[in-house]
Design a protein around this nucleic acid. Structure first.
Length: 221
DNA sequence: GACCAGGCACATC
DNA sequence: GATGTGCATGGT
């Protein structure tokens, strides 16, 4: 039932937008840095911050770990919340170096559940950030839920408006084929819909999901 | 100038 | 346990 609806949504989106080829970052560390910097922030601002780190040749776990916090804050300034994000990046790096000798490849050996638990224990890494890292940096079969995902699922009546993160994640994860590549594309496509149409004040004209049932009489968020 | 953006932690009730 | 608030830049 739900799985058919999800399949229909996926088909509509892939036809309209094509493959998204996410995450928009080449290396693991770039994906992780991006995942933290994009918290409640427009991606174009994150790109500026990442470009600054690249220009300074600092997009490297070891270099970032040893980088002075004030310098890091200055470089990531365009991404907003730069002081808190500096702490969050440092928290991740401290964990990585103290527990895994700075080796991201060491994390490959952990089970998905174990790695998720460890990431969530880091101050500044919440569910979405942890799941983005799991899916996009480590290709684990985890469905990422963000504001757009919630908004689209609720407005189209796939789930009740009170649903929390775990329920939303479960909605997709248990009704789709367990395939990291599919989860990757699907989430990226939902972000496209969110950015272009499913905003707090929805702009439904020309939305590829127009033909689906929907209920916009829910509180805007 | 208002609104929005690929959250999260913490304080307070 | 639910609700409110701070964090901040930059595009539309």
């Amino acid at each position: 039932m739900i799985s058919e609806q999800l399949t229909e949504i996926y088909q509509l989106l892939i036809e309209r937008f094509g493959g998204q080829d996410w995450w928009p970052g080449q290396s693991r560390i770039e994906i992780i840095v991006g995942a933290i910097l994009t918290q409640n922030t427009n991606w174009t601002n994150v790109e500026k911050a990442i470009a600054n780190l690249k220009s300074a040749d600092l997009l490297d776990a070891e270099k970032l770990h040893h980088l002075d916090s004030e310098k890091m804050a200055a470089l990531i300034r365009p991404a907003g919340y730069y002081n808190i994000k500096t702490k969050r990046l440092k928290n991740f790096l401290i964990w990585l170096f103290e527990k895994y000798d700075g080796q991201l490849s060491s994390l490959e050996n952990l089970s998905t559940a174990c790695l998720r638990e460890e990431l969530l224990a880091i101050n500044g890494i919440g569910k979405e950030t942890a799941d983005s890292i799991l899916l996009y940096a480590f290709e684990r079969e985890v469905f990422v839920v963000d504001t757009y995902t919630a908004r689209i699922a609720i407005r189209h009546g796939l789930i009740n408006s009170e649903a929390d993160y775990e329920q939303l994640s479960e909605l997709f994860q248990s009704n789709l084929q367990q395939d990291a590549k599919l989860f990757n594309e699907f989430h990226a496509l939902l972000v496209q819909v969110g950015k272009n149409f499913c905003k707090p004040k929805p702009n439904c004209s020309d939305c590829p999901l127009n033909d689906l049932p929907h209920n916009l009489n829910v509180e805007q968020f």
